[in-house]
């Protein structure tokens, strides 16, 4: 799966797609692959506020629990409710239908300090090399 050029990426394997003053946040294809079959998603309520780097939710596969971190300072506007009944969408469409939350950006400049697609692909290639070393 390719990493969209109009997304930015975090070292914790979240992506963010900015649309004006709001943005969608999800987890990357790399993240869903290392988790395996996702069976449970726990997300915040609209109105919740997060600072960059703080955990806003949990994604669980059969074998593991993984916290999801907000790459930016934001307020939650909307939550992807469809994931409660179809968490496996995270495995099948991590960069599209399986967005987790829609947020209002507090400090848009934070997005600029995140990795672009090329930098993220280089980052995960390095991770894979470490894992197989």
């Amino acid at each position: 799966m390719s990493y969209p050029a109009d997304f930015r990426y975090s070292k914790d394997h979240e992506w963010i797609k900015v649309e004006g003053g709001t943005a969608k946040i999800g987890i990357t294809d790399y993240a869903q692959k290392s988790l395996g079959d996702v069976v449970f998603v726990e997300l915040p309520k609209p109105g919740a506020k997060f600072t960059a780097g703080s955990a806003f939710g949990t994604v669980e596969s059969v074998k593991a629990v993984s916290e999801v971190y907000s790459p930016v300072t934001c307020e939650v506007l909307e939550v992807n409710e469809s994931l409660a009944s179809a968490p496996e969408t995270i495995n099948t469409d991590p960069h599209g239908a399986a967005w987790l939350i829609k947020v209002r950006l507090q400090t848009p400049a934070e997005v600029q300090s995140m990795m672009d697609a090329a930098a993220y692909e280089a980052y995960i290639a390095e991770k894979d090399k470490e894992a197989h070393a």
């Binding site: 395996g36 079959d37 059969v62 074998k63």
Partner: peptide, 11 residues
């Protein structure tokens, strides 16, 4: 291996 993702994975 925890699972064999290429052939379907854990479930």
């Amino acid at each position: 291996p925890v699972e064999y993702p290429a052939t379907g994975g854990l479930i």
